[in-house]
């Protein structure tokens, strides 16, 4: 009797395992099918390199180049702000402060990660956007720059947490070796710790980028949603995620517009998948050291 029950439980577990595998395949294939249907009716080169996203006008144009630029600009800006701050914070948390302070700071970082993107978008709208407008004296504060600042804030917890793990996994002997030779603690950190933890830190940055590229609500609320190709970071932009979120509800199922949005979804999916995959490789490398 006991054996029969055990076998049944094992069957259920096996089923759940298979279920998760099926979902992976399902998501892949669904995005691919819709996108291929789209690319049969619309040239893929025109899709990637086309300058105009006019899904409703005659003739229609589904060029996502401006959206790619928008996503890229916002992400780049966010990285420029978040990466140095995060890596330094990770160093500070793991190498400088005492254990108690470290626990408090890590909890704060975790709280930061938990704040929903709508709340961050809202704060951006209310606090940052007016500031940006006044500070740089531009017609609107809804710019790529505002998006970058708010997204940097969302990338920081990811990068800090994973870099901190990488830095802490540097074997103690490495550090002690350097300290025993008379190096100061800071020299040790700079020469030994940073170098050894580098793959992990790179992985952390990539996962941070993955998070920023996929962020939707915050960019919808603070970047202005203009699908012109921007000339500087102080102009409104539109990202791939924002287009999907803003337009999918209004499309007719099965229309070219609908399929075009799925193709954007596929592009996003592939970008983040590649980034995460690369990050995973770097993390694996860190482990082997």
């Amino acid at each position: 009797m006991r054996k029969i029950i055990d076998t049944m439980i094992e069957k259920v577990i096996f089923l759940c395992g298979m279920l998760s595998v099926i979902f992976v395949i399902l998501i892949f294939s669904f995005l691919f099918i819709e996108s291929f249907a789209f690319f049969r009716g619309f040239n893929i080169i025109k899709f990637i390199a086309g300058r105009y996203w006019y899904p409703d006008s005659e003739p229609v144009s589904f060029g996502i180049f401006s959206l790619l630029v928008g996503s890229f600009l916002v992400t780049l800006g966010a990285c420029l702000i978040a990466v140095p701050l995060s890596v330094m914070t990770a160093l500070y948390i793991s190498e400088v402060v005492s254990k108690n302070v470290r626990d408090i700071l890590k909890s704060l970082v975790e709280l930061m990660a938990a704040i929903p993107s709508v709340v961050i978008g809202f704060i951006g709208m209310i606090v940052l956007v007016p500031c940006v407008r006044k500070l740089f004296n531009i017609p609107t504060g809804l710019t790529a720059f505002s998006g970058s600042v708010m997204l940097a804030f969302m990338a920081i917890p990811t990068i800090v947490t994973i870099s901190e793990d990488a830095i802490r996994s540097v074997p103690r002997q490495y550090k002690e070796g350097a300290l025993a030779l008379g190096a100061t603690k800071w020299q040790t950190i700079r020469r030994i710790v940073l170098k050894t933890a580098r793959p992990g830190i790179i992985a952390a940055v990539m996962l941070g980028i993955g998070r920023v590229i996929g962020e939707t609500m915050t960019v919808m609320m603070v970047t202005g949603n203009s699908s012109r190709i921007p000339h500087s970071i102080f102009e409104p932009v539109r990202t791939m995620t924002a287009v999907i979120a803003a337009e999918i509800g209004e499309t007719v199922s099965g229309s070219m517009h609908y399929k075009a949005l799925f193709s954007i979804g596929l592009v996003l999916f592939l970008i983040t998948f590649i980034i995460n995959f690369a990050a995973e490789l770097f993390l694996g490398k860190n482990k082997n050291k």
Binding site: S20, V21, R211, G214, I248, F269
Partner: peptide, 27 residues
């Protein structure tokens, strides 16, 4: 491969899941 796929799925943007859910469940 499956394990790696699942780890990577955790990093796919939520809006893509929304899109997928809309296509599959809603439509």
């Amino acid at each position: 491969a499956i394990k790696l796929g699942i780890v990577n799925l955790a990093g796919v943007p939520s809006v893509v899941y929304g899109l997928f859910g809309f296509g599959i469940f809603v439509m």
